[in-house]
Design a protein around this nucleic acid. Structure first.
Lengths: 337, 337
DNA sequence: GTGAAAGCGCTAACAG
DNA sequence: CTGTTAGCGCTTTCAC
């Protein structure tokens, strides 16, 4: 293994000089800089991460905690993880991957050991048990998702409430009066995941404001489960003409069953989805949708964290405004019969 | 921050004693051990990761390189990543997440800096440019996937060739004589991803051996693309009654279009998929399929790597045998008309 | 603009 | 069974 001392010797300078050309923390004459850089290249030197962390008091690693569960939309998680990793690299950080499995202990361990300089948490619940720890710690963190109480925390998230409102607004504007919401799996609501509840709030309050009727049904399973769900919806609200779907695995079953029942999209019923763009354009009917900006969320989270690690910027809640793209799955409500 | 020295003082022992109760590398009297453990708990001590890595010459971190691309089946990647992380934790390792973005440089950086003790690489191409580096390095690594030349490497993968053979065998046994393969996106074949090519080899050689006719079509896009693909297949081989699908995003379009064309599954045509179990049971027709054992692959990769890091076990290629589960999408070939 | 030297917190001989 | 001590490779004063 090549050490800094060896580089120094090879370049005919002192160790501190090498260290400083690497960090740029003091000015170096062009000549020495070049000699040092040349030695580094020739010897294939890579600074030892452990030594650096020990002496410099920062590991240049950020931890990313992802959920262990797989009932939530996986591609979104993956896209966020990748965006976090590439953005982190661009800021000089590596990413340590943690699963929710260890819970708060993982936070303690990583913070306590100085393994990571800061952390990004996904899948935040409204009353997450990791939050007290984060508030106490000196180590900065950023949440992707919004807990109930955000004091002392930095959060990045899509504005889910506005997302819900936007969906209802779109359907209301097209004349729909009875709307059904196909939601995430029941477990997602039961553990009070922020995004699911907030979306629902947005849907409901906007529906109330517009005088629309709204039905919400969690969904989980395959085609049979969807058939049941749909049957119940049309039993309870035969005049339903608008659907909002927030559950990737519900999209195809919904479209297929509507088709089978002779309900044309968008002539008879309209469908608005909350999903990544990629999904919206790959379905049998191109979906009018509000995009889940996974990459943007990952990127912004790292940028906020990097800023905090550099001493700039304090706590802040960043809510990304939703954007609705009209495609082929929504249209004017059919004339009331 | 609490240090080992503080724990030692609090417990009234020397630093080395504390270190040894932590590592278990020499026997400690029950009394001292308890006092030390008590002090650790009371002070909330966590060993400093950097210092440990520096002095101990191992970081207890393994690096996981995942592909940046998103044209390959994402949930499989995610499942592997999660299995790697939880298994690694069980063996005392943390996981550093790297994207393919940096390519071979990431390998150099991570190995050179001692950031990770070893690495696991996913999305291995047949002639991967990272392989020479891995062969040179003293640091152990495990590939998930199989390159063309495995000398000096440890690999874990599903036996894709056997997987292809198994699919053909199943269809052949049911009397199908003309088989069409709906494959991954063209780009996947173009960059010579091992699993795609090996599957094809298995399909072809078994088809040849059984005297079947086989057609292979890469697939990418939405329903329109599938309509075109299907039209071509039935033009070229009107007698096609068996399909093998290796491309998650092709499954629903295929089923929908067959239905629309009045071809019943499994009465008129049979479909065998290569996909995770979860996908096979969630489609409109429950699919006869060969499972992609993502968790198993992740787990095995970590176990091999941990063994190498502990000095046991050398290079080895672990090929997981494919398992085909018969569900509702395959049946006897229709009597030739 | 450059060096010398004192640690950072821990591990692992080496001694008893 | 336990203590003493010499580094691990780097960053960062302090001095010139």
């Amino acid at each position: 293994m090549v050490t800094l001392a060896e580089v120094a010797q090879h370049a005919g300078v002192s160790a501190s000089t090498v260290s400083y050309v690497l960090s740029g923390k003091r000015s170096i004459s062009a000549g020495t800089r070049q000699r040092v850089e040349r030695s580094i290249r020739e010897l294939g030197y890579h600074p030892n991460a452990g030594a650096r962390a020990l002496a410099g008091k920062r590991s240049n690693i950020i931890a990313l905690m992802i959920p262990l569960r797989t009932d939530l939309y996986v591609p979104v998680m993956m896209e966020i993880a990748i965006a976090v990793t590439t953005t982190a690299r661009a800021h000089g950080y590596d990413v340590l991957l943690l699963t929710g499995e260890e819970g708060p202990d993982a936070v303690r361990r990583v913070i306590g050991s100085g393994l990571a300089d800061g952390m990004i948490l996904m899948d935040v619940e409204l009353a997450d048990e990791r939050l007290p720890l984060l508030r106490e710690t000196a180590r900065p963190s950023v949440l992707i998702g919004l807990p109930a109480d955000t004091t002392g925390l930095t959060c990045v998230d899509l504005d889910w409430s506005a997302t819900g409102a936007l969906c209802v607004e779109h359907l209301a504007g097209l004349g729909h009066r009875d709307i059904a919401v196909i939601g995430e799996a029941p477990a997602v609501y039961e553990r009070h995941t922020g995004f699911a509840e907030r979306t629902l709030d947005g849907l409901r309050s906007r529906a109330r404001a517009s005088g629309l009727r709204l039905l919400h049904r969690p969904y989980e399973g395959g085609y049979d489960a969807m058939a049941l769900t749909l049957a119940r919806i049309f039993d309870e609200r035969p005049a339903t003409t608008g659907f909002v779907v927030q559950n990737e695995s519900a999209v195809e079953p919904l479209l297929a069953l509507l088709r089978r029942q002779g309900r044309a999209v968008p002539e008879d019923v309209s469908v608005v989805a909350v999903c990544p763009e990629q999904v919206a354009v790959q379905t049998s009917v191109r979906l009018t949708s509000v995009a889940i900006p996974a990459q943007e969320m990952g990127r912004r989270a790292v940028e906020r964290l990097a800023a905090k690690l550099d001493g700039h910027g304090g706590d802040e809640v960043v809510l990304l405004p939703p954007e609705l793209t009209v495609r082929s799955s929504s249209g004017p409500a059919p004339a009331a019969s």
